[in-house]
Every structure is written in structure tokens, then in C-alpha cells.
């Protein structure tokens, strides 16, 4: 094992973490502010990826596609919120899970109907093709570094939005006392639509960026959704800070675990078995980590003070 390889894996872990953060930020915001469990968040990720792939292939520009992913996912989020989600806020979590699960099916079938069952492919834009040399000599794709940078920028933007703007104040006020913020003249329903659309846009943005690394296909959102739920449970439901830390933890631990566990095991068992056992153990690692964190901090790393 070389240092260069470890560094490369660490960066891969960060890149996965950043993606998970984009998903988890919306999910945790929607749960924290509206008390809504949104299983269809993965569908919005898929919508973003398809919008980017379709628009990029029609216009020849990844960048226009990226803007489209943001816009389409936000629009899909706003429409879904207006038509379905706002009827769910006062319902219990089981109703929310059932209804948003139905939305997954509708989104999946709708996408299949529009684009067919074959995956789409999205090329990395020319500006971000190629690789840079890491210290230690290994080459690392520029595009993945760009994803990390974009994620960091979004995290900063969200921090400023929630922490410094009036919209952010109202969101936080709504988290602690939604009736009161309404009684002061803030239209909480519109605020909720905005928050939902914002979360959707972030998910769509993540989908578009990952779309250039993997194929764009129906069902691509659900595996990410599951990881994003692990992230927000670890981070503390409702906390953006927790989502950031949780996402980076899950991304790095998952990636490094898959890389290191087989190597560590190889010291004790024959290499062929080490790969097998190590791989299996690595895929459980984040769940073990979640269990350990919850054992010490039952409400996650940054549990919100209320609720």
C-alpha cells in the first residue's frame, strides 16, 4: 500500500461524502423544518441526472445541462410539494412514508416512459477532463476534485443562507415554533415550498454531477437515499452541520473500509478469502459505525435542541 493510493482513496471518500451531503442536506432540512420523511428525495436526484443528460445531449453543453438539473429538480420539487407533500405535514410518519414511496414509483415509471429503460450517458465536460498529479505521484481525475470543490461551495452557501439571511432565520424560527412565525406574518406554506424546492435542487445537482461518473438510469437514487438516511441519523436529524459531518464520515469510512479491510485481513488469512470477507465486512462498516455513534449519542452528533 502506497501513500499515493491511500490519498487517492481518501479523496474518493471525500467525493462520495460531498455527494451524500448534497442529498442529506435537503433531506435533513425537510425533516427538521417540516417534520416530513421524504422517501422520494432519491427520485429528485434521478430527475436532476436525467435532466442534465437530456439537456446536455440536446445542447452539447454539460454546463447548460447542470443548470437544467438544478431547475428541473427544483421545479419537480415545488410541484410535488404543492400537489402532494403539503397534505402530508400534519399526517403521521407512516402516511408520509407510504405517500412518498408512491411518488418514487410514479417518478420511476414516468422517467421510464419518457426516456425508456436504457441508461443514458453523460460526458465529463472538456474543461474538467484529465487528471492532476497528487503528491506521491498518482494521477487523480480533475472532475472528482471539481465535485469536492462544488460540494464545499454548496455547503458554504447553505451555511450563509441558513445562518445569515432572513429566509434562513425564518426557516430556523419555523423549526422551533411554526405557529408563532405565522402569527407574525410569515407565510409558512410558501416558506415550506421554497425549502422543499431548495432541497430538491440540491439533490438534482448531486444527481447530475454523479451522472457523469456513472450511468444515468431509473432507480439510481434509491441506494444514495439509503446512505443519505444513514448520514442524517448519524449527524442528528434536522442539523445541516450534522449532515455535513455525517456525510464526510460515511463517505470516507465506507471508501477507506473497502480499501483497507481486505488488506488488513490479508495479514491473517489467504488473500483470496481476505478480499471476500473484507469486502463483505466493509459494506457493513458504516452501519456498525452508525450503531456505535447512536449508542453514545442516541440522537446523533448534532441533535437539534428541540423536538
Amino acid at each position: 500500500m502506497t501513500l499515493a493510493l491511500a490519498l487517492e482513496q481518501l479523496l474518493n471518500g471525500l467525493q462520495l461524502g460531498v455527494m451524500l451531503f448534497l442529498m442529506a442536506a435537503g433531506l435533513t432540512l425537510i425533516f427538521g423544518v417540516m417534520g416530513l420523511i421524504n422517501l422520494a428525495h432519491g427520485s429528485l436526484y434521478m430527475v436532476g441526472a436525467f435532466a442534465c443528460a437530456a439537456v446536455a445531449s440536446a445542447t452539447g453543453s454539460f454546463w447548460i445541462g447542470l443548470i437544467a438539473s438544478f431547475a428541473c429538480a427544483a421545479a419537480a420539487g415545488a410541484i410535488v410539494e404543492l400537489l402532494v407533500i403539503r397534505r402530508l405535514y400534519d399526517r403521521d410518519h407512516l402516511d408520509q412514508v407510504l405517500a412518498t414511496f408512491a411518488l418514487i414509483l410514479i417518478f420511476s415509471e414516468g422517467t421510464r416512459w419518457l426516456f425508456g429503460s436504457f441508461p443514458l450517458y453523460l460526458d465529463i465536460p472538456r474543461l474538467l477532463q484529465g487528471a492532476v498529479a497528487l503528491p506521491g505521484g498518482a494521477q487523480y481525475p480533475v472532475y472528482r476534485l471539481a465535485i469536492i470543490a462544488a460540494g464545499a461551495l454548496v455547503a458554504l452557501g447553505l451555511y450563509l443562507l441558513i445562518g445569515k439571511t432572513r429566509l434562513g432565520m425564518r426557516i430556523r424560527a419555523g423549526e422551533s415554533d411554526r405557529e408563532m412565525i405565522g402569527a407574525l406574518g410569515v407565510d409558512i406554506r410558501t416558506l415550506y415550498t421554497v425549502v422543499f424546492a431548495l432541497g430538491a435542487a440540491l439533490a438534482g445537482f448531486a444527481g447530475a454531477m454523479v451522472g457523469a461518473l456513472q450511468s444515468v438510469q431509473v432507480g439510481m437514487g434509491e441506494p444514495v437515499l439509503i446512505l443519505a438516511f444513514v448520514v442524517i441519523v448519524i449527524g442528528g436529524i434536522g442539523s445541516i452541520k450534522g449532515a455535513l459531518l455525517g456525510a464526510l464520515l460515511v463517505g470516507v469510512v465506507d471508501t477507506m473500509g473497502r480499501f483497507l479491510l481486505p488488506q488488513v485481513l490479508a495479514l491473517f488469512v489467504p488473500p483470496s478469502q481476505a478480499g471476500l470477507i473484507g469486502g463483505a465486512a466493509a459494506s457493513m462498516l458504516i452501519y456498525v459505525m452508525m450503531a456505535l455513534i447512536l449508542a453514545v449519542k442516541p440522537r446523533g452528533l448534532f441533535a437539534a435542541a428541540h423536538a
Binding site: R166, M169, R170, R172, A173, E175, I181, V186, A305
Partner: peptide
């Protein structure tokens, strides 16, 4: 969960 200033200006 808001500061005094934020309580005053939020709405």
C-alpha cells in the same frame, strides 16, 4: 434558537 437580533428582524 435565534439570536435577539434575529428574533427582531426575522418577521
Amino acid at each position: 434558537n435565534l439570536t435577539v437580533h434575529e428574533n427582531l428582524v426575522a418577521a
